[in-house]
Design a protein around this nucleic acid. Sequence first.
RNA 1: GACCUGGUAGCUCAGCCGGUAGAGCAUUUCACUUUUAAUGAAAGGGUCCCGGGUUCGAAUCCCGGCCAGGUCACCA
Length: 572
Amino acid sequence: MQPKFTNKMSVQLSEQEIVRRESLAKLRALGINPYPANLFPVTALTNEVFQNFEEGKEVVMAGRMMSQRIMGKASFAELKDAGGRIQVYINRDEICLGDDKTLYNEVFKKLLDIGDFIGVKGTLFTTQVGEKSIKAKELTVLSKSLRPLPIVKIDDSGKIHDAFADPEQRYRQRYVDLVVNDNVKKVFLTRSKVISTMREFFNSKGYLEVETPILQPIPGGAAARPFITHHNALDIPLYLRIANELYLKRLIVGGFDGVYEFAKDFRNEGMDRTHNPEFTVMEIYVAYKDYNWMMDFTEEMIERVAIAIHGKPECRVGENTISFARPFKRISMTDAIKEHTGFDISGKTESELFEWCKNNEIEVEESMGKGKLIDEIFGEKCEKKYIQPTFITDYPKEMSPLCKEHRTNPELTERFELMINGKEIANAYSELNDPIDQRERFEEQLRLSEKGDDEAMFIDQDFLRALEYGMPPTSGMGIGIDRLVMLMTNQSSIQEVLFFPQMKPEKKQVELSDAEKIILSTLQANNPLELNTLKTMVGLSGKQWDSGMKGLSKHGLVKVEVNGDTKMCVLK
RNA sequence: GACCUGGUAGCUCAGCCGGUAGAGCAUUUCACUUUUAAUGAAAGGGUCCCGGGUUCGAAUCCCGGCCAGGUCACCA
């Protein structure tokens, strides 16, 4: 009956986990179900209690016990529920009315731990020190926690002690992060409010929230590397969408005047503090509008969001105070470059642009076309300068294959990006609705792709067919929700605004090392063996022998029995 | 992808000119009826990230790897 080395077998419980499992068993032995099935009739949340504090009022509350301060026959515990934290006063003789004091002495003092869910029925009162609390009359075990929670404490001066702060652990175990770090929850409440504010704004205008495919046969609407998957029944490849633009425009063709979608998009590219492989984008398309109208609309939307979050159209982001009050500055890309470099790109040839870049410390490659070069100049010399919300308008044509040609300059498009805090937040067009022009632009992309640009767009024939039926003049706008939330919550990494950011898989380990395997197999052939004999037989280095033996006894596989001077190594 | 920094108890961290691992909180036991980072006393608790090397001896030194964070590049 040798134990098999599966991952399950080698799980080592810490002392504290063992203690908690024992407490669990003792609770059951006392006739207390640590995981009761029946509902618990909660009457109040912490924030409601504090907002409307009525001395002596009877309440029933439930939550996680976050601390215990035991002083003989009286104790204080901290209860954390969805509305916050409240102190519970527990007096032995008030929760144990008869002679049997087990509930207090055993259950509360010994068998309950920090992290357990409990229910309390009692009355509201204020302690001598002035803290609003509940005086418990009944205590109910609602769910036992088997793992110790990190104990984060805050002292009188507000200083945090023993913070659970390691980003890796916080992201991998977000549930612990949320329980233990109260401020983390606020970020996600704000995230939800950003989205609901936008949704209410769109709905008030009569635009329709829609859903479009995530699995797409052709990943269109952006230049990015997609994730690819396979549909078994159809036996075809499918892509996870990189944008939803082309589907939303099909709906405009179909006759909706305004459609929007909060969409998860997926891009198979690098990960860092501003990129997660899946991220949220809101795209909206409104018929009979142009990009000038869309700038007004975007401004109003952003201002509303800022006011909803901060109560005023202003917030601090890092070192900067950003004002979201309308109107935002508007400047063409040409003027922006002129303003920051003195260089006038209008009418310049590709080689003139190329030369200028080389002379101004911008890294360029021979393969770059005019559009790409202009984009490099802007990105390198201008982008970071726009801290306050600014619309950059009229981008070069070859960078924007889905955007309508500018009404007065055929080299440009009717496109704007909204820059805030030196970063792009939103991107919008007067949408290209000329199907013949669109087909030519796609074919240009195809040529780029053949030249080796792995991000050039595919030709979506069905989308072209839709345009050929006719799409009204339309303006569309896309906004990165994660980055907007980062702005509104003053976070500098995207991981902080995603509940579960993508992480490398946790490595599963706990296989036997080679040294352990050798020792074990030798011992299995000759059980038991004298320790030094075994050491000689396995022929390992001192260190390998030592760590191998340590490991095996740790796994509970071998035991060394000492009898006087002889040490016998025995298989367990 | 490059460079820098880090990985030691449940949590936060110290130890590191190589000599068998420490603190605070948490846990266990005891005392204590309004405390609040409760307090006082005692105890237990570690694959010092993994693998290899140097060495009589490695948490510590060297090499390789894994993971994370940061900076930059790339991409959008």
